[in-house]
């Protein structure tokens, strides 16, 4: 049994038109045994950046705190919020520091970045457990249901979805993919990030 599958859990992020979405299931398990259906694995980094941490639950807690540390130091020294691109490299380098004894987490991040002209640009990225970055233009997935998420997202995602349509797409993708994975599910949480607000919704899922 891989340590990556010990606690279960999956995260997905998608790009829409001037918006991004990030969603995760809420299951915490001990192998096949379900422990909690209220486990959060997506955390806000700034007002416009959210970070999903699927993988070993103890490392979810540790990495969340380590990223808070490093983002706070960035913010206080630079006197401004970190941009999603910069944050992605922060995630990458933090994980690569532990190249030969890694955190068992494959982070997924979603955010909105501001261009110098004042326009907004949706941003998503994911890394493997040692920090190899994947900047995708459509969607990124990670966790125990990642193979299923790829399949469903390939079928449902289309370019330039409006926030409400993106919500429907990411929700259906996650719910249906996690139904096909024994280690993910037990409810979902979805964040839709637009330039001036974040909408968070929790979804009920199958409890088997």
């Amino acid at each position: 049994m891989s340590i990556m599958e010990l606690n279960g859990g999956s995260v997905i992020a998608m790009v829409g038109k001037d918006c991004v979405a990030i969603a995760a299931d809420m299951r915490l398990g001990n192998q096949a045994l379900g422990i909690s259906s209220k486990f959060e694995r997506i955390f806000p980094v700034t007002d416009r950046i959210y970070l999903g941490l699927p993988g070993l639950a103890t490392d979810v807690a540790t990495l969340r705190e380590r990223f808070r540390f490093r983002v706070n130091m960035y913010t206080i020294k630079e006197e401004r919020e970190i941009q999603p691109e910069t944050f992605a490299h922060l995630v990458s380098s933090t994980l690569y520091e532990h190249r030969f004894g890694p955190y068992f987490i494959e982070p997924v991040m979603a955010g909105i970045s501001k261009t110098p002209s004042g326009a907004v640009k949706p941003f998503i990225a994911a890394t493997d457990l040692i920090g190899c970055l994947n900047f995708a233009k459509d969607f990124v997935v990670a966790g125990t249901a990642s193979t299923k998420l790829y399949g469903v997202a390939e079928g449902l995602w289309e370019p330039d979805l409006e926030p409400e349509d993106l919500f429907e797409t990411i929700s259906q993708t996650l719910l249906n993919a996690t139904d096909r994975d024994a280690f993910s599910g037990w409810g979902c949480i979805v964040h839709i990030i637009t330039k001036d607000k974040v909408v968070t919704r929790t979804l009920k899922g199958r409890m088997d």
Partner: peptide
């Protein structure tokens, strides 16, 4: 100042 900020964040961690 840098030392103080780091110390504060270490405490938070």
């Amino acid at each position: 100042v840098n030392y103080a900020r780091t110390a504060a964040q270490r405490h938070l961690l």
